[in-house]
Amino acid sequence: MAQSANSLHGTSASVESILSEELARGDRSLRGVAPVLAHLLASSGQPLVSDAIVARVRGMLDHLARQLLAAERAEVLGSPAHGPPAPAEAVDALAAHLAQDHVVLGHSHVLALESHLAERLERRASLDPVLSPLLQELIASDRPAIAELAMTTLAAQSRFIQSQRRMDMPLSELPAELFLAVIACWETAARAGERGGVPRGAIERLKRSHDEGESRAGLLARLVSAMGSGVLAALELEHAGLALFASALASVTRQPRENAVIACHESQAARLALAFRAAGMDAQAIERQFMLLEPGVRVPGVIGELAPDRAQAILARSDARVVDIER
């Protein structure tokens, strides 16, 4: 981030063009993520322990494959409690097929990055990855609906952290569009193999059980919405915690949540600075947030001279969506 942040310095007259150029560089970096991940996952010589992000992505894709094959076996046998697990070669083949889909791969990458950032913030700033001060306040709200929603969100965040430690990705946690993309990959892989296709009953059962609104991302979005104007409190990373912070930043700046998460990466300093300014934060507030993420980075005061609507417009011109559902 230091190199990118250093290039943010400039006069008030040039700050918009500088940030636009940096954002374009960040866009190019994001477009290269999925192909690079696909290459690393396909390489048998890539040590799993050499890159925590790659290892987690690989583990999540394997977990998706195991869940899909278990659903298929349950449909064929009539009960999920009987029969051996899917052969390792079948899991590997389906996981490799999932890895070829950049939508699935991109979402896996963002989840792995979010958990990695949460762990780093816990080490650096003692920020609990599950229960943040703001979430604790919401749980204690005198409005029963918000308190209940906050408790449910807490449980979902706890499950997310535990799943990431196991390198798992439950099907129930997928956004609706991504869930359908995974099902489509499964069907394509089955048709290409010897099985001839996926049993329709298995697909329908999974679709009936999927509820995006009860996923962690769905619950976070609902909680942010319920906060109303109080959502600005969630833009304080140390107070809100990374999960709630990312959802709030996405909501306020009208970006996909995945982009808000990726903006916290060291290579995306311009994207994060623009998002903060689009949310109406002044230069001092922006610098405080950068100090938490990257203590060595100083944000130039001229960022405060960029109008929030101009910052929003620059973000809107960005052609990168981390998880490009629409493709």
Rank of each mutant, 00 (worst) to 15 (best):
S4I: 04
L8Q: 11
V15W: 06
I18F: 08
L19K: 02
S20R: 14
E22C: 01
R25D: 05
R25H: 04
G32K: 06
H39D: 13
L40K: 15
A42M: 05
S43L: 11
P47M: 05
L48G: 04
M60S: 02
L69N: 02
L69H: 00
E72T: 15
A74K: 03
E75P: 00
L77C: 04
H82G: 04
P84M: 12
V91K: 11
D92F: 10
Q100A: 14
Q100E: 15
V103T: 15
G106I: 04
H107E: 11
S108W: 07
H116K: 06
L117I: 11
R123S: 13
L131S: 07
L134G: 00
S141N: 02
D142M: 08
A145F: 01
M151N: 05
M151T: 06
M151C: 00
T152S: 10
T152H: 06
R159P: 00
I161R: 15
P170H: 08
S172P: 01
S172E: 13
L178C: 02
L180R: 11
A181K: 13
V182F: 12
G193S: 14
R200S: 12
A202G: 08
E204A: 05
L206Y: 10
L206G: 02
H210V: 08
G218A: 03
L219E: 03
A221W: 02
L232Y: 12
A233M: 12
E236Y: 12
H239D: 08
H239A: 12
G241W: 00
L242I: 05
A246C: 15
S251D: 07
S251M: 01
V252T: 09
V252I: 10
R254N: 05
Q255N: 03
E258A: 12
I262M: 10
A270Y: 05
A270N: 04
L272V: 01
A273Y: 07
A275F: 01
F276M: 12
R277G: 06
A278C: 05
A279Q: 01
G280A: 08
D282A: 01
Q284N: 14
Q284C: 07
Q284W: 10
A285V: 02
F290K: 03
L293I: 08
G296L: 02
V302A: 08
I314L: 06
